[in-house]
Simulated scan of single mutants.
Amino acid sequence: MDQAKCCVYPYLKEIGDLVGIEFNLTHRIARKTFASAVLLYNNVLTEVVSRLLGYSKLQTTQESYGRLRKRGLVWRLIN
């Protein structure tokens, strides 16, 4: 059994149960949530997000999360 299944998934299931999420949380969902909700929406620099996620190229982060950054900026402008 790989490390994610034996160590991370039980914690994700517990978190999901506590907050009432009715589908299986995966490490991919956890990474995306961490990157978007915790980092990008709190104005952490894209370069820092890229390093924390372990990407070797900044371009990967920009392609994956750039639209989220733009959406967050628009939301702040209208609210």
Rank of each mutant, 00 (worst) to 15 (best):
Y11K: 15
E14H: 10
L12E: 03
E22H: 08
R76T: 05
K57C: 07
Y41T: 14
T60V: 14
V8Y: 02
N42Y: 03
D17F: 02
V49D: 01
S56C: 04
V48A: 05
P10F: 06
K13G: 04
S64V: 07
F23A: 04
R69I: 15
L40N: 03
V8H: 00
T61E: 04
W75E: 13
L73P: 00
D2G: 11
T60H: 08
C6P: 00
A4C: 09
I21H: 03
R76Y: 06
Q62K: 10
E14P: 00
S50P: 02
L39E: 01
A35L: 03
R28K: 14
A4N: 09
A4Q: 09
T26H: 04
M1E: 11
R69D: 10
P10M: 07
T60K: 04
G20I: 08
H27G: 11
A4S: 08
V38A: 11
I29N: 01
R69M: 11
E14I: 05
L25G: 02
L25Y: 04
I15N: 02
T33W: 11
V38R: 11
G72E: 03
F23I: 13
R31Y: 08
I78W: 05
R28P: 00
C6R: 15
G66S: 06
R69K: 15
V49N: 00
V44T: 14
L68R: 01
L73Q: 12
K32Q: 12
R51W: 09
A37H: 14
R71M: 10
V48F: 03
V19P: 00
I21K: 04
V8C: 07
S56L: 05
S64E: 12
A4E: 12
Y65M: 04
S50C: 15
T26D: 09
R67Q: 13
L40S: 03
V48T: 14
G16P: 01
P10S: 09
R31C: 11
